[in-house]
Write a protein that binds this DNA or RNA. Sequence first.
DNA 1: CATACAAGTTGTATAATACAAATTGCAGTA
DNA 2: TACTGCAATTTGTATTATACAACTTGTATG
Lengths: 142, 142
Amino acid sequence: MKDILEKIEYEIALLVRLTTAISPKLGELDRSGYILLSKLEESEPVAINAIADELRLNVSTASRQIAALEAKQFIRRSPDQRNGRTSLIEITPRGREVFRNVRKARIGAYSEILGSWPEAELSRLEETLEKLNHSLADWEKK
Amino acid sequence: MKDILEKIEYEIALLVRLTTAISPKLGELDRSGYILLSKLEESEPVAINAIADELRLNVSTASRQIAALEAKQFIRRSPDQRNGRTSLIEITPRGREVFRNVRKARIGAYSEILGSWPEAELSRLEETLEKLNHSLADWEKK
DNA sequence: CATACAAGTTGTATAATACAAATTGCAGTA
DNA sequence: TACTGCAATTTGTATTATACAACTTGTATG
């Protein structure tokens, strides 16, 4: 059991390294912007606060990343009526377009990487990763 | 099928983010040094070259990381008889000790994170991650 | 309304990384 | 054997991702 965890721990560290090695090829978006947009793409306008929380980012980091995306006009802010300190962040059509293009490219890469996997294995991978992320997210909230 | 890949792609991006958020807690070793030592811990003395290759690091990056580990005396170099340009990198006893302590802490974290998983699921996770890493490593060699 | 708390921004620092140029050694060929 | 090109590494420089601490401004409550 200890051995399994040891192996998992190692494989995760390695996975992070290997995926980092391939992800620079993101084109107009950098890695941090990409994950942010992928959250924003599916959500209602939200406060920076909430974004930082979901991605376990320090608020200052989230603030800068959002500012960078705003400068490129991939997101925009609108004032939050209920709270003068907050603005609500929302992806722009341009942001959505760029995001989708990058995603398409990334999916293309993964379809090569995983090309030889039978579909059942892919499903397993998907489920397992999702579950792992949930466990990670829960833990960090502690 | 496209949908599965899309999901996988997203989950991997998220996984990278979430694990990055927890990994600063590495103590005496930083993230990059940790993965390097984990390779060296199990290998014969190797050239920087080979390390960079295995981890898909730019050689210059590997060179710096090795230099940092050397400064802390976690690795040492010995000349390669067959090649004057190369030295062979090897983990030191001190390096091994520090590595194992950090690893123990990390395994501890993962045992909390994955505490609720039945053992069968853990095995699945391990296998799946290993396979994914192999596919990634193969692809990048292209 | 005064004080404490919340949300966000900005100053500063660090880690991880890549690319390009420079150095030094090796190996094959004219 | 001297020359030329390739291999292995290091160092200069730049960029991205990130955190922590200090500051500003708004909100809410005793």
